[in-house]
């Protein structure tokens, strides 16, 4: 369960978040939809406790991330917008490092690593250094490191950017599987088809505020449009920043 309440965040004179509130429920995939610069990444950074909000709170499984960022972060797995792999480490070392960071030790750590390797089918690249990996292989390693501690909440920031069809499909299948296991999944995107196909709930953000929220179907009905893309354009009032 992820929640942000009345977030306000300013960068100098620019108000990036203007009283933003939304929540993501367990066993659901919640999509955070918005044009570039709408405040998606900023909202997520505040939720992780990486940025300090000027006002409002981010709550992860009941823990206020502004007050106890370390406690809150233990409850989440993060799939960042920029992968940021350690190029000189092997995939196994990379995943083991994140297992360490989440406090896994000994046999439990080994088993968790083996489990995630099997789940993502990365046995063939696991002992290679990340430097030569393709975008699809990188995605898998990043996903593996965000899942190794089996978090109750998974946050993905524009996960399908730069991925080919096969990689996108793998990612999608895993997200659906996790959702069925009761994981709370929040992902930000500006790819309409993906959001329409995956999300149980869509939150549309524009200019640091909530423009609307509901199922993709509800959004279409409310705006009187056929497709989510048309509904989105109507909601945010321009067609800027949409990937078809």
């Amino acid at each position: 369960m992820l929640e942000v309440k009345n977030l306000v965040k300013k960068f100098g004179d620019v108000e990036a978040l203007k009283n933003l509130s939304f929540s993501a429920q367990d066993g659901q995939i919640t999509g955070l939809l918005g044009p570039n610069g709408a405040g998606k990444t900023t909202a997520l950074r505040v939720l992780y406790g990486l940025l300090k909000a000027d006002d409002g709170v981010g709550v992860i499984n009941g823990i206020d991330s502004q007050k106890d960022p370390i406690g809150a972060r233990k409850e989440i797995g993060i799939f960042p917008d920029k992968f940021g792999l350690y190029e000189r480490l092997t995939a196994r070392e990379q995943i083991a490092y994140f297992a360490d960071l989440h406090g896994l030790v000994g046999d439990a750590k080994m088993q968790a690593i083996e489990k995630v390797i099997k789940r993502l089918d990365i046995g063939d690249i696991i002992d290679r250094r990340c430097a030569g990996f393709s975008q699809g292989q990188r995605m898998k390693v990043v996903l593996a490191q965000s899942l190794v501690h089996e978090p109750k909440n998974l946050i993905l920031d524009e996960p399908t950017r730069g991925l080919d069809v096969m990689s996108t499909r793998i990612l999608r299948d895993i997200l659906i599987e996790l959702k069925e296991q009761g994981t709370c999944i929040l992902f930000s995107s500006h790819v309409m088809q993906e959001v329409a196909a995956l999300c149980d709930k869509v939150i549309v953000i524009a200019d640091g505020k909530i423009a609307d929220e509901g199922t993709p179907q509800e959004l279409c009905e409310r705006t009187g449009k056929e497709s989510l893309e048309e509904a989105f354009v109507t909601l945010i009032g321009s067609d800027e920043g949409i990937a078809a």
């Binding site: 972060r73 993060i78 960042p80 920029k82 940021g84 350690y86």
Partner: peptide
């Protein structure tokens, strides 16, 4: 290389 931010998002 974008790995610092991800590291600081960990507990």
């Amino acid at each position: 290389r974008n790995s610092l931010e991800l590291l600081l998002m960990q507990p």
